[in-house]
Amino acid sequence: MRAAWRAEWAKLLTGRAAPAVPLGLAVLLTAGGVALGRDSVDPVQLRLLGVRLGQAAVAAAGVQLLAGEYGSGLIRTSLLAVPRRLDLLAAKAALLTAFVAPAAGLAVGVAVIGLPPGGALARAAVASVVYLILVGLLGLGVAAVVRNSATAVGIVLALLYLMPMVLRMLPDPDWQRVLYRLTPATAVQALTTSTAGPVALPLSPAAALGVVAAWAAGALALGAFVLHRRDA
């Protein structure tokens, strides 16, 4: 595991740091919420709207970190250096977290500048940072499964943005309601809201984080399984 971490770190230091581009974009998009002002029933939610844009770029960074290696062919050299594939995936997950966490922290911090401090604001801000980390890991996991950047980004964006729309086409309203609660789109809404009580929200913030964590963990587990089983 230490060798895998050293390899990933050195790759980043010697490379053109390709994932830095989407990560920078994520910071801009997320922090951009600061421009939305404070005149709203829920200014925290308004300011954190940028999280819903920035997540796309964070997901792309997660995808790029692994699918980029399949695109160039570098993965075959990486696996010669680090033949334990789960170590490779774990090192990439750790590296991604180590970069998304401060970037998201900075971006969310900027987005909520000037809002009156309080427990609700702190909860929503921390939840937003954790959410963005989980979305990055979701991207990494999906990339491990499908190995192609464009396919992986397409799948992750569909999960993040299109699922509620697709669910609306379901004929059974009960199923619709249940599945709707399991979408990341519903979760991000619940996580970034400060004023409305649980009555108005389809999910509590804790449950919302649980939902996103389950998506990320599911993608990483499937990715780890596929990476372990398939030929490189």
């Binding site: 050195a10 010697t14 490379g15 053109r16 290696e69 993965i75 075959r76 010669l80 033949p83």
Partner: peptide, 30 residues
């Protein structure tokens, strides 16, 4: 493992934007 066995299987298994020396540098670190 690269101290036990060296392999040249696919000459294209590298990142095109990294210099040859940097390609070897990250491998050395690993």
């Amino acid at each position: 493992p690269m101290r036990h066995a060296g392999a040249l299987l696919d000459p294209h298994a590298l990142h095109p934007a990294r210099s040859g020396r940097d390609h070897l540098r990250w491998l050395a670190r690993s």
